[in-house]
């Protein structure tokens, strides 16, 4: 029995399959894929459990969970649950299930985790401002030729390349 993790798919094959999944979503639902919208909804849900009045008073939160609205009653939330299960399934079949931290050789685990938290926070903030993340904007908007999504994509990659030099120790 081989316990080595399987290889990843070729990027072009993975892209092709991903494109078909996206196309199927368009054909069946008339909408695209997403991720950060569902994360936003779980934040609103959590805050709503603690202080519902706060949700109703904040114009941004109210949009998702104001009044009797259940922020989790949404297409994207179910889609993202599927994403987690799908990822788990693939990891299981490819023997990649393992608690570990990905990082470059020149940074400590603690340092990497601190940066992951920081980067996540920056990304979370930016994703809400940009009305979506890589899945919702770049992928979905890219395929439908949405103008703003293409502008978003270009700026995101440009900004990533511009800043990459300064955090190179984390990765290489």
């Amino acid at each position: 029995m081989n316990s080595q993790p399987e290889k990843y798919w070729s990027p072009y094959l993975a892209g092709f399959v991903l494109g078909l999944v996206l196309l199927a979503t368009f054909v069946i639902m008339g909408r695209g894929l997403g991720a950060s919208g569902a994360m936003m909804r779980s934040v609103v849900y959590a805050v709503d459990q603690v202080t519902p009045a706060h949700i109703d008073n904040n114009p941004y939160f109210a949009k998702y969970g104001g009044g009797d609205k259940n922020p989790l009653d949404n297409w994207l939330v179910y889609e993202v649950l599927g994403v987690i299960v799908g990822g788990l399934l693939s990891g299981l079949l490819a023997k990649r299930l393992k608690f570990k931290t990905d990082k470059g050789p020149r940074i400590s685990v603690k340092g990497r985790l601190a940066l992951a938290l920081t980067g996540g926070a920056i990304m979370g903030f930016g994703a809400r401002l940009a009305l979506g993340c890589t899945s919702g904007q770049a992928l979905t908007g890219g395929a439908t030729l949405a103008l703003g999504s293409w502008a978003f994509m270009m700026v995101m990659f440009a900004s990533g390349y511009a800043i990459a030099y300064f955090v190179r120790k984390q990765w290489i």
Partner: peptide, 22 residues
């Protein structure tokens, strides 16, 4: 907001290493 958000996310991507879905 899309361009500004994109710029912020580029920074977050390199620092955090993921995007929300991944």
């Amino acid at each position: 907001p899309q361009m500004l958000g994109g710029a912020i996310m580029g920074v977050g991507f390199v620092i955090g290493g993921y995007c929300p879905g991944t």
